[in-house]
């Protein structure tokens, strides 16, 4: 998922304090994810689509980010109707579609989709670093926040280095097979990557120290939480609670 979600324009989600946004939307995601009613799961999806519209994140970008999560969720939709034993919703010849399986599959799919959409809204409203810093403000340990930030930058670089290692192997006639030799070559390639990563991390640290790094990321000035941020957060929390109350009444 591309966490740096562009928005067509600045929206109320972007203006919202990231701490309030992350905390309240996480609660809403948890509330939707634990719903046990298909009707409420549909409502949860509608709510999440509403947030997506308000956030003004381009639909194409949002759909692009949902490719892999949807690929993960789709099997539930198609496998559970045939694998869960319950009353038949439909029976054609020897194929029986289970009612409970269909509902269960649809519920998992809908809730998953809603959660992925809300996660995009939650993280797409500000830069990766701002989100990470907001998590720090919410109590996440500093070292973990730094790992997040630096990993985000270096995962790409590690991928490039691994690619160059495999290119160099191919250039020398290496072909992937399922034998012991392939396993050994792969082991060596990953060891080389680890070694390079270690050396790079030492050079990175030197470059950071040369710019005054002392073990802590300097805290960016985050604006103080305003009443409207808290109210918006409260509104989202109330939505999360309402879903659970409605579920209890059903």
């Amino acid at each position: 998922m591309n966490l740096k979600t562009p928005a067509d324009d600045f929206s109320i989600i972007h203006a919202w304090d990231p701490r309030a946004r992350i905390l309240s939307l996480m609660l809403l995601i948890a509330s939707i994810a634990t719903l046990q009613s298909i009707n409420l799961a549909i409502l949860g999806l509608v709510v999440s689509l509403g947030f997506l519209m308000v956030s003004r994140i381009p639909l194409q970008h949002a759909i692009g980010n949902m490719r892999w999560p949807v690929a993960f969720l789709l099997p539930f939709l198609f496998i559970l109707p045939f694998s869960v034993r319950s009353d038949a919703a439909l029976s054609i010849s020897f194929v029986t579609i289970s009612l409970r399986g269909t509902v269960l599959g649809a519920m998992i799919f809908l809730k998953g989709l809603a959660a992925v959409i809300l996660a995009q809204v939650m993280l797409g409203g500000s830069s990766f670093t701002t989100n990470a810093m907001a998590l720090k403000d919410l109590g996440m340990p500093d070292s973990l926040v730094q790992i997040f930030i630096f990993s985000y930058r270096y995962i790409d670089l590690l991928g490039q280095e691994l690619q160059s290692i495999f290119r160099s192997l191919s250039s020398r006639g290496f072909e992937r097979r399922s034998g012991r030799r392939t396993a050994i070559v792969y082991g060596n390639a990953f060891a080389a990557l680890l070694l390079r990563s270690h050396e790079r991390s030492e050079r990175m640290l030197q470059s950071m120290l040369s710019r005054g790094y002392s073990g802590h990321l300097p805290h960016q000035t985050t604006r103080s939480m305003e009443l409207k941020d808290a109210l918006l957060g409260l509104m989202v929390v109330l939505m999360a609670i309402s879903l659970k109350v409605m579920e209890a009444k059903v």
Binding site: S127, F128, T129, I149, R200, M204, S207, M208, R211, P218
Partner: peptide
């Protein structure tokens, strides 16, 4: 003393260019 390292990928550590260039001044 400002330093430029041989491999720029060792020096560009933050998710965005602005944050990277702001890293030193903020540390100061």
């Amino acid at each position: 003393v400002g330093m430029l390292f041989q491999d720029p990928d060792d020096q560009l550590i933050m998710p965005s260019l602005w944050e990277d260039v702001a890293f030193g001044p903020r540390n100061l």
